[in-house]
């Protein structure tokens, strides 16, 4: 659980301390991985097995798994859309540095 929070925070750190737009998308992806890890950890029940009801077995909570399948696909869509937008920005500005999109000033 704490490792999942650590992965989220690594993504957050990369999100705040980067100027490269592609690195920002990578940080967002890392944050999504941390969220997946956190949800699957929350759904764990001690002694549980994979949620396949092949008999009277005790399973883990299946709800976070299905929510996370949804989240994976939405993460893919978000990343793809962001990268396409970055490509169009790169065509226009000739750079992937986000500080150049705001007139090239240093102040954020």
């Amino acid at each position: 659980m704490n490792i999942a929070i650590l992965v989220i925070l690594v993504g957050l750190y990369g999100l705040t301390n980067n100027d490269n737009a592609i690195k920002l998308m990578m940080s967002l992806s890392v944050m999504g991985t941390g969220v997946i890890l956190l949800f699957v950890t929350v759904g764990y029940i001690p002694g549980g097995e994979a949620p396949l009801m092949t008999g009277p077995v005790s399973t883990v909570d299946p709800l976070p798994h299905s929510v996370m399948i949804t989240f994976i696909v939405i993460n893919l869509a978000t990343t793809a859309l962001g990268l396409a937008m970055i490509l169009q920005l790169f065509k226009g500005y000739g750079s992937v540095n986000i500080s150049e999109y705001f007139g090239g000033e240093e102040e954020l």
Binding site: L52, T59, P62, S66, T70, A77
Partner: peptide, 23 residues
């Protein structure tokens, strides 16, 4: 017998429809 599939496509198929629309 696959609980994840059951939740994804039966109990919460409306959510899955929204996800498909997002994609």
């Amino acid at each position: 017998i696959n609980l994840v599939e059951t939740i994804l496509l039966n109990y919460r198929a409306y959510d899955t429809f929204g996800e498909v629309m997002v994609l």
